[in-house]
Amino acid sequence: MSGEDTGYDAARIEVLEGREAVRKRPGMWVGSTGERGLHQLVFEVVGRAVNQVLVGGSGSGKGSGFVDVTLTSDGGVRVADDGTGGPFEAAGGAAGPDLEALLTSFHAGPELSGRHITDVGQFRAGLFVANALSSRLTAEVRCEGGRRVHEYARGVEVAPPADVGSATGSGTTIAFWPDSEIFQTTRCSFAVLAERFRQVAFLNRGLRISLTDERPAGGTRAVSFRFPEGVRDFVAALEAEAGTAGHPDVIGFEREDPRMAGTMEVALLWTGSREERIRGFANSRATCEGGTHVDGFRDGVAAAVTAYAGQRGLLAAGPDPRTDRICRSLRAVVAVKLDHPEFLGATRGLLGNTEVRNCVGEAVREHLGKWFEEHPERAAEFVDRVLRGIDQD
């Protein structure tokens, strides 16, 4: 069909830029205008707060870094952190673009990146999108003893930034009200947000994230998450939820490897199940389809078990057991943080960095092999359980 037939030509092309483009096609930026998109809007703001804390060093596991999220009674969301704060208007630089630029432009300059950056949401659309899709947003920065506030309405500045008094400490507070003209619902799910924040806290050892809900008529409800043992706590919690709390044999380690330009944190537990339950994460993003970090983990476990069993004459003659059978009764979390993660597929649920597989496999084989040597009785029990399970197939 020709342009003449349809009456369509270049003059009919509508070019939208900036906030108009975001408000015209919100699903492109947050996934949907339903509850899922609403939660993504919250994750955009919380993600920025988490990264301010992590990059500033507060959430490194040694400090008391926090992000406090409040669902206010008037339908708003308030996100406060004790990150570095920084000037509201600045030239950006090593710390990334200033807050005003992030709120008002797609092109604010280079974003923070690397292994220290956590993806709380799926898209990393940024604060500009959150601002454009909120009927109202206020941003407060605490820095160098002062407080500065800026207010917007549907992404448009209401008044210039104003100094509003003194402050102790540093950090940022962003309060926003999702726009009812955009979203089908502006009521966030406490359960959905709490589950994701709990996961982020597991994957960023020492970071504290709290969620407070001021909306219930019966009174405020609140939860707070902080896990000093990181993914070891994650595996223990998953096992407890399965009804086997108190298992003493969660094996865990972390390692930095320059060959993959990143770090890994791994925890595993052999259970009585005959089902493999391995959860992978890259830069705190769930990799539901797996990837090279999960493949490397399986390689390492299989190599450690096979070597241990072979040294002790536990393997019957014939080919080595298949990796999937060795890993069948495992519950594990494999989390990597990379300077340059490469996600494959439309949903970005598959990690593709090729060097990660060998690095993770080698680290798991070495650590698990060492653990077997240091705990011979439990090692013999685990390996025997694995081999008996294989023999029963």
Rank of each mutant, 00 (worst) to 15 (best):
Y8K: 08
R12F: 11
E14T: 12
L16M: 14
E17K: 10
K24N: 04
G37D: 01
G37Q: 02
E44T: 08
V45E: 05
V46E: 01
V50E: 00
N51S: 07
Q52I: 02
V55I: 12
G61K: 08
K62T: 13
D68W: 03
T70C: 06
V77H: 01
V77Q: 00
V79I: 10
D81Y: 07
L103F: 11
G114V: 09
R115G: 05
H116W: 09
G126D: 04
V129Q: 04
A132Y: 02
E140Y: 03
R142M: 13
C143Q: 13
C143D: 13
E151I: 01
E151Y: 00
A153D: 12
P161A: 15
P161V: 15
G165H: 08
S166K: 13
A167G: 11
A167N: 10
W177A: 04
E181M: 10
F183T: 01
T185F: 07
C188D: 04
A191L: 12
V192M: 05
E195V: 12
A201P: 06
A201M: 12
G206C: 05
R215V: 13
G219Q: 08
F227A: 06
V231I: 08
E241G: 14
A242K: 12
A245L: 09
P248L: 10
F253G: 01
E254P: 00
R255V: 13
A261R: 12
E265W: 04
T271V: 06
E275F: 11
A282C: 15
G290N: 09
G291Y: 03
F297T: 02
D299R: 10
V305S: 03
A307M: 07
L314H: 03
A317L: 11
P321R: 01
D324H: 13
I326E: 02
C327I: 07
R331H: 02
K337F: 07
D339F: 04
E342I: 06
E342C: 03
G349R: 15
L351S: 04
R357K: 15
N358T: 12
G361S: 05
W371G: 01
E374Y: 04
V386S: 01
R388T: 10
D393Y: 04
